[in-house]
């Protein structure tokens, strides 16, 4: 039983690692999906354990929501790409406190 928990927390860690290191928005969206799926795995597992439908319903909802968010994220990314012609997120530094020094 604890092995499943291990797998989902592994998924969580990988997702977070992917977020921190990858700079391409699409890859970041993928790693976010990993986190979501880790959570879903947990939910399904526990609802199976407690033999109740709550967990599964929440998992279903979260999948739907994840889909919405991916669509939205890609939309924003595409609009940004059209304008900026570059995908390196690190380049987008206009909104910051850097140059607006005292």
């Amino acid at each position: 039983m604890s092995t499943l928990l291990m797998v989902s927390s592994l998924l969580l860690v990988i997702g977070i690692y992917g977020l921190l290191t990858r700079n391409n928005p699409i890859l970041m969206i993928i790693s976010i999906e990993l986190i979501f799926n880790g959570a879903n795995l947990n939910l399904v597992h526990f609802s199976r354990l407690y033999n109740s439908m709550d967990g599964i319903s929440l998992a279903l909802f979260s999948i739907a929501i994840a889909a919405i968010e991916v669509a939205l994220g890609l939309g924003i990314f595409l609009a940004l790409y059209k304008l900026e012609r570059k995908t390196e997120l690190r380049k987008f530094r206009r909104l910051s406190d850097e140059e607006v020094s005292a």
């Binding site: 979501f36 879903n40 939910l43 526990f46 929501i65 994220g73």
Partner: peptide, 17 residues
């Protein structure tokens, strides 16, 4: 936003567990 809701969902799953 999405990262934090992901983290939140994971938290919920553990509480549910």
């Amino acid at each position: 936003g999405v990262t934090s809701s992901g983290v939140m969902l994971f938290g919920i799953s553990i509480i549910y567990g």
